[in-house]
Design a protein around this nucleic acid. Sequence first.
RNA 1: GGCGGCGUAGCUCAGUUGGCUAGAGCAAGGGAUUCAUAAGCCCUGGGUCACUGGUUCGAUUCCAGUCGCCGCCA
Length: 518
Amino acid sequence: MMGQKFYVTTPIYYVNDSPHIGHAYTTIAADVLARYHRACGHQTWFLTGADEHGVKIVKAAAEKGLTPRQLADSVVVHFQEFWKFLNISNDDFIRTSDARHEKRLQAIMERLLQRDQVYQGKYEGWYDEGQEEFVTESAARENQYQSAISGKPLVRYSEPSWFFRLSQWREKLLAYIQAHPEFIRPESRRNEVLSKLADGLEDLSISRSLAKLDNWGVSLPNDPTHCVYVWIDALSNYITALGYPPIGQEGDQGRWDFWPASLQLIGKDILWFHTVYWPCLLMALDVPLPRTIFAHGWWTSEGKKMSKSLGNFVSREVITELCNEYSRDAFRYFVLREVPFGADGDFSRQAFQLRYNVDLANGVGNLLARTVNMIGRYFQAQVPQPDPSAGAQPVQQAAEALIAAAGPAMEQCRFNAYLDKVQDLVNATNKFIDVTEPFKLAKDATQRQRLGGILYACAEAVRLVLSYLEPFMPDKAAEGLSQLGLAGPRRLDQVGRWGLLTPGQALGKAAMLFPRKL
RNA sequence: GGCGGCGUAGCUCAGUUGGCUAGAGCAAGGGAUUCAUAAGCCCUGGGUCACUGGUUCGAUUCCAGUCGCCGCCA
């Protein structure tokens, strides 16, 4: 499959919260995909950002004696710095308070009005301010008129509001989901959406009175007393960041070619917004739908739900500390290796260290070390000649298996399957060394050619291992490859084949890539 | 309460359309080695495949019910 363009998004993160493993997980996954596609030579665009409007921010700011913008400005840097720290290669970072977003969002609202997709009505009912979500009467009663999530009292709203004709899109959306199995994944989430859609769909209130919001929102072009509902505001970022719709300013032509998105990653908590509101909004705008919305799972920590009071919260600070001890690449590797993407997983220091030692220190790192060491010792640190009599077929087969599996695995966000194949190649190569015993052949001058062939195969396997790990572990891959004497940006579609190491090439300096941790 | 999923070796899980002695990784025990980060390699698991019935020549795999866990919805 020669997809030439790849556009991946994360949700824009709400600046009421500071970054934690949940944010990091989605963002690392998106980064790995972006790096992989760039390495394949695809035109790639990777967007993340911050969601800044809403009553929650207004209130939080007031409590701190700040304006909403001051609060947003102070929190958003935590995300931006954290992404830099985790080596996230996003091409853009959009904030819903950016002028470029606000103007385009207003243009979107105008377009919806022109298309008769929005009408004025009256909203009366319960509202969960923590979730920025309306609650039905029956659901409110069920929970004693408190938020099912936060337990805080629901607020009674009664006000004129603008509504989006969501209900009119139900049939089309259902048909679309049924015709496109890859649209919502994993399949269990797709079934949930289909099941809930079967229950019906009501029009959606998409405006709020600006008076309650300290003017912290995007006003409706046709009604300056109201602003756009935060979810419509937030979802629109995926297209406004690409310059849609054009508003006669810079950035208009920039990136729209990247739409429709190849992949929009989300947490399972925001499934409904992204698989119903979002596609219906796009249909109402006559904009094509993204190819795939992928909802991943949640992390627990040390076997329990994360909570600040339990002390098991995997915060930015905790992750930073782990990265400083084990390397940020090890953390990136762990979160995508430990659990199938889509399923829930548990984060524990023990599991992290175990995975680090087994896969990285004892596996990849040790293989690199013994390979570089032997070539250094027996061939003056120069890549030897390949030799068909080396018996390296098992290694080469594992390499071919990795090469064949990588694309499909990435296509389906099966990161752990991809990494399994990498590990298989490591294991096959370690076994190869033990079976062929190059360290014994080195004592016999008549075996020199065969010895070279064996070590060539080892070096070649390590080169491929590191090349394929590069999207996950950019720093470590570069360090490891430099020990093989390789440098510079590497295109997987050019270097991801067996037999490309050049005999005679000088190795670089050896060093422990992943020191074992006790 | 409705819909859906799950319950397989100590742990985490694979097990296509039912059929050779039920598998992998990790952990644990033993062995032969030394190039390497005391890492790597080899050997070792006999588990009522939740329970009970049923269909079948034969079910972990199909059906029904029971118990337990989880997700979405109400």
